[in-house]
Design a protein around this nucleic acid. Sequence first.
DNA 1: CAGGCGTGGAG
DNA 2: TCTCCAAGCCT
Length: 348
Amino acid sequence: MREMAKAADLLEWYDRHARDLPWRVRPAARANGVVADPYRVWLSEIMLQQTTVAAVKSYFQTFTARWPTVQDLAAARDEDVMAAWAGLGYYARARNLLKCARVVADEHGGLFPADHATLLTLPGVGAYTAAAVSAIAFDLPEVVVDGNVERVMARLFDEHTPLPAAKPILTQHAASLTPDTRPGDYAQAVMDLGATICTPKRPACGLCPWRRNCAAWAAGTAPELPKKSPKKKKPVRLGIAYLARRVDGAMLLERRPDKGLLGGMLGWPGSEWDDAPAEAPPIRAEWKTVAGEARHTFTHFHLRLTVRTALVPMDRQPTRGEFLTRDEFSPADLPTVMRKAFDLAQGA
DNA sequence: CAGGCGTGGAG
DNA sequence: TCTCCAAGCCT
């Protein structure tokens, strides 16, 4: 009979293999009493939601350099934070990030709460993030379950029930392994294991400290776990974007409404995105159509964007949006799909 | 509870 | 080119 996996074995592995990440206090430093800054832990966890470590790194550096404390972030202008988040995706995270920073600054004296229940009340903080902050920043023995942990547990216990139905049982398994000593390091250790060894494809089982305890390794089923319910196919939608340049170089842009796709972000005025978009020019002009199209894939549909451009005089007033001067606007402030439209118009 | 919500990298 | 997917949250 296989022996039950032990947290201590994983912690031993983590002590030797922990990745050096900008938001992480390494195990050796933790042993010397260094504690994590809850602000940095929270910020990193929000950025890491459904987002790779590689994509997050530079954004984390930018944010912490510009807004070193939660009070600094709470005092920031909305448009500056949205611009700094541009390109990272899931923009509701940025809107909730600001809301949360202001709640912590105004209602919690600038200190992040440590307990799971209070963390859960914060905007953008769900079950995973609350547990992660509680464990990593305050070393409390919360059960941290993200996609990595789900995969590790599904394999360790050879659980074939597909996600998301399997979530409760996988959480129970995770709870059974969570230790009272070094829970913060343990949480990061399981996620590191999932990210580097117990990977979705071609897991490196030969290097796994829990191999001898792994039911899926014994059964040879590790690579096919966890099972997932089948996903839907993405429809194609069409759209038209209007890039108006004023003679002084200012560009006509529009702040998108807070709710919905790309909420709160800058974008080009345009048509609806559907099967047969109607023309919707935001200003009277001689529009020229750029050859080709900007293609972009969102979570649930593919977009093919036709780009029209125009040069307009200083005194012409738009019916939508507003002109932003060269000083007020950089293409880097745009979400990627809008930047693609800009690049296409530039001939890039 | 299923669907909305981004993006870039890997295979 | 296409599919999968990465430290989820909200409604």
